[in-house]
């Protein structure tokens, strides 16, 4: 049994917009062990990124974390001061965002951007910081790191920039690395390389990874466990193999149905009809019911509780496991 690194309990994060209150994360709980990989899957607006930003305590106006606890190595991050959080961010918990070009400062060299992170978190001399920056670039597979460290982001290719961002994120050997759709802007071949790299680093540092994606096929190769989110709520959680063998929630089945099979199979992919509901005015009952083929009276009226149908599994559905011929 591994130690629990991160435990989120009943997290509620809301945004108070002019149009109304957006329930971006609505009472979710999840946990992540040391060195474990958790995939968080859902469509845009399902609350994946807001969950991650809540862990980082980077929710900004008009957003507010309104309830719950975020325990990192047993300590509640929601009780920390901004100063304490500054020491945790970048050092113990870091986050890599999806668009590597806009995520790097265009006016500083890659080396300057890595060394300034080192400057704030570690006691190293200037020379040691630069040596370490070169070493980090080498570690993430950037060729000729001695030269590359002096280059600006726009002189890097997309894949190289994402590697550089990862180098920055792991520069202080964090225990938790949050990846927010890190490969969306990249080619599939580059995507595979990036995940190989993260896998390697994860093993080398026993780093827990929190991978946000909308792509279940990425999760299959990279994660140990998956959490499926829909409209701000966790609807299903399972170990990766179990999820693929027997998805319980109709939404999960819909997501899996939209992945093309490797050989033969159907000519047409399944799609989930309709779209993600408006988070300001959610439907009564189950959030997914308006799009669900199996939904009946009860689904439209009552919200299904998150239940434990098996070891390591959770699902919130009145019709869990039914395929509905």
């Amino acid at each position: 049994m591994t130690e629990v690194l991160l435990r989120i309990e009943d997290l509620v994060t809301r945004f108070y917009t002019e149009l109304g209150v957006v329930k971006a994360v609505d009472g979710n709980s999840l946990h992540l062990g040391e060195g474990e990989s958790l995939g968080v899957v859902g469509e845009s607006g399902s609350g994946k990124t807001v969950t991650a930003l809540s862990v980082m305590r980077l929710i900004e106006n008009p957003g507010r974390i309104e309830g719950g606890r975020i325990l990192f190595r047993g300590e509640d991050l929601l009780q920390k001061s901004e100063r304490q959080m500054q020491r945790i961010r970048g050092k113990d918990i870091t986050m890599v965002f999806q668009d590597s070009l806009s995520s790097l400062n265009p006016t500083l060299t890659i080396g300057e951007q890595i060394t300034r992170v080192l400057r704030f978190h570690l006691r190293l001399s200037r020379r040691e910081r630069w040596r370490r920056a070169v070493e980090l670039l080498r570690q993430v597979g950037i060729p000729e790191p001695e030269q590359r460290v002096k280059h600006y982001p726009h002189q890097f290719s997309g894949g190289m920039r994402q590697r550089a961002l990862i180098a920055m994120a792991i520069s202080c050997s964090p225990q938790l690395l949050i990846l927010d759709e890190p490969t969306t802007a990249l080619d599939v071949t580059i995507e595979a390389q990036i995940f190989e790299l993260v896998e390697e680093l994860k093993r080398a540092f026993r780093m827990g990874t929190f991978l946000i994606t909308h792509d279940l096929s990425v999760v299959a190769t990279f994660c140990d466990r998956v959490v499926i989110m829909y409209a701000g709520k966790i609807v299903e959680e399972a170990p990766v193999t179990a999820l693929y063998d027997r998805p319980l929630h109709p939404y999960t089945r819909g997501l899996l149905g939209s992945i093309p099979p490797l050989e033969g199979g159907k000519a047409r992919l399944d799609s989930i009809p309709g779209e993600v509901p408006d988070l300001i005015s959610l439907p009564p009952g189950c959030n997914f019911s308006p799009r669900c083929r199996l939904a009946d009276e009860r689904c439209w009226r009552e919200e299904p509780p998150l239940e434990h149908p098996g070891p390591g599994r959770r699902v919130a559905c009145w019709k869990a496991g039914e395929t509905g011929g």
Partner: peptide, 13 residues
């Protein structure tokens, strides 16, 4: 801009 968010996520003051 995104790089401001990155800077915050790296714990820069």
């Amino acid at each position: 801009r995104n790089h401001v968010l990155t800077a915050k996520a790296m714990g820069l003051p």
